[in-house]
Amino acid sequence: MSIQHFRVALIPFFAAFCLPVFAHPETLVKVKDAEDQLGARVGYIELDLNSGKILESFRPEERFPMMSTFKVLLCGAVLSRVDAGQEQLGRRIHYSQNDLVEYSPVTEKHLTDGMTVRELCSAAITMSDNTAANLLLTTIGGPKELTAFLHNMGDHVTRLDRWEPELNEAIPNDERDTTMPAAMATTLRKLLTGELLTLASRQQLIDWMEADKVAGPLLRSALPAGWFIADKSGAGERGSRGIIAALGPDGKPSRIVVIYTTGSQATMDERNRQIAEIGASLIKHW
């Protein structure tokens, strides 16, 4: 067993022997301040990774656009098919120029040779490549099948209805392509620590998230040296922004954090800054 596999296998073990965790309302004060600064709703939840206990939450059962955070769930569904012998990570998928959609920095470079399922998941999570996500959605049967996968996990809230990039439209009061912070946090925890996926697939999923290259201005910008984070960000229309993450000190994750916002007129930089400040408060009061 590799060191990384050992780390993920012992996530519940280490967490069980940690000192009790206590909620700190100071972080919620910052979440509410972010709402004021952005002029928009902000949803927040913080779960203990081992027990699933909610440590703090704000608007945990209000719907927010998922945006690209759905790509972690998508690759979880792909990995479940791999575990069941219905898919192979090494299978190569070929596609054409007509398949390319807006923001496809990886797939646009491989029109000639195609990409493997493993490479597509890596591109979808680490670079948020939209064509990679659409190609992977095709392998599982489309958005409705991802929703069905989530329902089978016990998540009857999260739903995907459309493809990239239309799913980022974020129309107010439109339930399409949305989740709730509580539902997303619980589902992410199941994917990373539950028995739904094999140990190898859980490790692969967290490795992809740990290698995320496009979430630097968010929670990662607030992390002290030595902290662990595996995350996936999302951005959408109407001032929408979000991030889902597993993080913790001492090089291992111990909490799940989900943050979503929508309806702001603020710039992307300002949305990023507010999420980073929430992260800084979380870490300060850990």
Rank of each mutant, 00 (worst) to 15 (best):
E26Y: 10
T27W: 01
L28K: 15
L28D: 02
K30M: 10
D33M: 13
A34P: 01
Q37K: 13
A40V: 06
V42M: 12
G43L: 00
G43T: 00
I45G: 04
E46G: 05
D48H: 07
L49E: 03
N50Y: 12
N50K: 14
S51I: 07
G52R: 06
G52V: 04
K53F: 11
I54M: 14
I54C: 07
L55T: 08
S57L: 08
R59Y: 03
R59W: 04
R59F: 03
R59I: 04
R59V: 02
P65T: 03
M66S: 04
M66Y: 04
M66A: 07
M67V: 10
S68H: 01
F70Y: 04
K71M: 01
L73G: 07
L74W: 03
C75P: 01
A77Q: 11
V78K: 03
L79R: 00
L79I: 05
S80P: 05
R81Y: 08
D83T: 06
D83S: 07
E87P: 03
L89R: 06
G90R: 11
R92L: 13
R92N: 10
R92F: 10
I93Y: 07
Y95D: 04
S96D: 14
V101E: 08
V101L: 11
E102R: 11
S104H: 05
S104I: 05
P105L: 06
P105S: 05
L111T: 11
L111K: 09
T112R: 13
D113Y: 11
M115N: 03
T116A: 07
T116F: 05
V117Y: 04
R118I: 09
R118D: 13
R118Q: 15
L120W: 00
L120C: 05
S122T: 13
T126A: 10
S128M: 00
D129Y: 00
N130M: 01
N130V: 01
A132R: 00
A133S: 10
A133C: 05
N134C: 00
N134H: 04
N134W: 01
L136I: 10
T138E: 14
T138Y: 14
I140N: 05
G141M: 06
G142D: 06
P143M: 03
P143C: 07
K144N: 15
K144L: 11
T147H: 07
A148K: 15
F149A: 09
F149N: 06
F149K: 07
L150Q: 06
H151D: 11
N152H: 14
D155N: 05
V157A: 11
V157M: 11
D161N: 08
W163V: 10
W163N: 10
E164L: 00
P165T: 12
N168H: 03
N168D: 05
E169W: 10
A170F: 09
E175K: 12
T178G: 02
M180S: 15
P181N: 00
P181Q: 00
A183C: 09
A183T: 12
A185P: 00
A185T: 03
A185M: 02
A185N: 02
L188F: 11
K190M: 15
L192Y: 08
G194S: 14
G194A: 12
L196N: 12
L196Q: 13
A200D: 14
S201W: 03
Q204V: 13
Q204I: 13
Q204G: 06
L205M: 11
I206P: 01
I206E: 09
W208V: 00
E210Y: 14
V214Q: 07
F228D: 04
A230N: 00
K232L: 00
A235R: 05
G236P: 02
G236E: 01
E237Q: 15
I243E: 04
I243D: 04
A245Y: 03
A245Q: 03
L247Y: 03
G248H: 04
P249C: 07
D250K: 14
D250P: 09
K252H: 11
P253C: 09
V257C: 09
V257R: 00
V258S: 06
I259H: 01
T261K: 07
G263A: 08
S264M: 07
Q265A: 14
M268A: 08
D269A: 13
R271H: 07
R273M: 11
R273T: 13
R273P: 04
Q274R: 11
E277D: 10
E277A: 11
G279W: 02
G279E: 04
L282I: 14
I283Q: 04
I283W: 07
I283V: 10
W286Y: 08
